[in-house]
Write a protein that binds this DNA or RNA. Structure first.
Length: 492
RNA sequence: GAGCGCGUAGCUCAGUCGGUAGAGCAACGGACUUUUAAUCCGUAGGUCCUGGGUUCGAGUCCCAGCGCGCUCACCA
């Protein structure tokens, strides 16, 4: 019997207990931080080869993972070990181990990472189990894990220490891995259609291609003010001028705006451009990207979204902006006086606003909440679309669509404007009632110069990857699909 | 940016009317060879977010700040 040492003040006492075990492991001549561990198999696979009848020994397996649970009955111990493919019980019987091996086994804490060799079987209670023949210590955990039953609930901790969320909360790891699968699927959809991936600058001299406040930074050696990109558009179009006929980029963009359940200051977009296409080709491609991504998940085209169900079976309805406006706002969007009346009734500020801006405001207020979708809203008023080709014979209509699903704006696409003189004019046209930073119209002479060389007629598409993952995984906060969303500085 | 809510042990949470801090899990010591959030006995563990204020006395009431959440605004 040893007298326990005086307990150090919390929280170091918990770490101290683990450090003592670390030393004890070293005294057994073992490395508490582990070594290369070859030829182990995924736990998911070990579960598959496990026999389904009692008293039948299955094949030998070797797994590695983190200890999540322990039922210690003295000479018989049960552990639950988890890797990124699943979780399995390990049974350790004292009679199967030498004295030193048993000493090591008694030093295993919750949260430690171990390797196990043994035969699969099921126990009396029907639990798939590895009957351990050998235990290899792989990594000591010095931190106290969260409560074994309730897990970790404190949202702030889960966001600041996402690894805790990934390890201990059901479904988090799976959801994050789904994000990767969806992105892989997008790449293979595009590869099959002969698109190539490009990497364009993140640091921009002019933050163009979208309407948003940029983050500002500075290059010291060149003494240049620079912006983090708010869109991928203008560089990818320059590549089209250069003859890269089908090009895309999946990349981070940065917008210096508010944070809420559908907005994070840095987020991931895909933009793609297809020479000799138009916005109709982009609708077909959007459907293909969604359907293929769903195939790599569970393949179910009818997917839950909270209380609702979204049916992704193509083709999705196309609805004209003007028709939707008439249906929900109750007047013709070209009747400026009537639009003003509706706006006033909705308590929208009317003064000093260009009619096109007002139409847009009324549309958002009256129409968007009705767009449960998936629905392509097509043919936007051209005044709000300075980068979009106008419809042939209808200069007031831009060949643009936005994809809406339950109020979320998922995608935005154009038949791309490739007339350099019109582009230059539109960059100059600042609608009244719209602040410069809220406008897509930002003069970019270098881009106009590129168009003068000649960009083929083309379709272009942008999809918010984070929102796509949200929808396909039924996650209602963008923070659920971004590993490390932005938080304020942690106070010491 | 505004309103509302939350912040107590490593974790999950109680804490009544303002009277000096509680449980479960985890930890530590002990018993246990088929458990399922094992069980049983025992021990230890607290800057009650921070700083002021009221009070004989504050986890509790008041003010300010910090962090997080929700709603709204902003973000076409």
């Amino acid at each position: 019997m040893t007298t326990p040492a005086p307990t150090p003040p919390s929280p170091d006492r918990l770490e101290a207990a683990r450090l003592e075990k670390l030393v004890a492991i070293e005294q057994l001549g073992l490395d508490p931080w582990g070594q290369r561990f070859d030829n182990h198999q995924p736990i998911g696979q070990a579960r598959e080869v496990c026999p389904t009848e009692q008293d039948v020994m299955g094949p030998e397996v070797r797994i590695a993972g983190r200890v999540l649970l322990r039922n210690d009955r003295g000479k018989l111990k049960f552990l639950h070990v988890k890797d990124w493919t699943g979780r399995i019980q390990v049974m350790i019987s004292k009679g199967d181990f030498s004295e030193d091996d048993w000493k090591l086994i008694e030093l295993i804490d919750l949260g430690d990472i171990i390797g196990v060799d043994g035969k699969t079987r099921i126990t009396r209670t029907g639990e798939k189990t590895i009957s351990a023949a050998k235990v290899t210590f792989l990594t000591k955990s010095l931190a106290q894990p969260p409560e074994k039953f309730h897990g970790a609930r404190d949202v702030e901790m889960l966001l600041r220490q996402r690894y805790i969320d990934l390890i201990y909360n059901e479904g988090v790891l799976e959801r994050m891995l789904s994000r990767g699968k969806i992105i892989d699927s997008i790449r293979s959809t595009l590869k099959a259609r002969n698109f190539v991936e490009a990497e364009t600058p993140v640091l921009h001299s002019i933050a163009g291609g979208a309407a948003a406040r940029p983050f500002t930074t500075h290059h010291n050696a060149l003494d240049m003010q620079l912006y983090l990109r708010i869109a991928l558009e203008l560089h990818l179009k320059r590549l089209m001028v250069g003859g890269i006929e089908r090009v895309y980029e999946i990349g981070r963009v940065f917008r210096n705006e508010g944070v809420d359940s559908t907005h994070n200051p840095e987020f991931t977009m895909i933009e793609l451009y297809q020479a000799y296409g138009d916005y109709e080709s982009m609708m077909e491609l959007t459907e293909a990207i969604f359907v293929n991504a769903i195939q790599v998940l569970d393949g179910n085209l009818k997917r839950p979204w909270g209380e609702h169900e979204v049916d992704y079976t193509p083709p999705w309805p196309r609805k004209k902006y003007g028709d939707l406006f008439k249906e929900h706002a109750g007047c013709d969007m070209n009747d400026a006086a009537a639009v003003q009346e509706v706006a006033k009734k909705l308590h929208i500020e009317v003064k000093g606003k260009d009619p096109a801006v007002l139409v847009n405001d009324v549309f958002e207020e009256t129409v968007e909440s009705h767009l449960t979708g998936p629905v392509f809203v097509i043919d936007y008023p051209s005044a709000m679309c300075p980068l979009t080709k106008r419809k042939k014979g209808h200069p007031e209509i831009a060949e643009r669509f936005e994809l809406f699903i339950h109020g979320l704006e998922l995608a935005n696409a154009y038949t791309e404007l490739n007339d350099p003189r019109l582009q230059e004019d539109l960059f100059r046209t600042q609608l009244t009632g719209l602040k410069e930073e809220d406008s897509m119209a930002k003069m970019d002479h270098d881009f106009v110069r590129a168009l003068k060389t000649g960009m083929p007629p083309a379709g272009g598409l942008g999809i918010g990857i984070d929102r796509l993952v949200m929808l396909l995984t039924n996650s209602h906060s963008i923070r659920d699909v971004i590993y490390f969303p932005l938080l304020r500085h942690e106070t010491e």
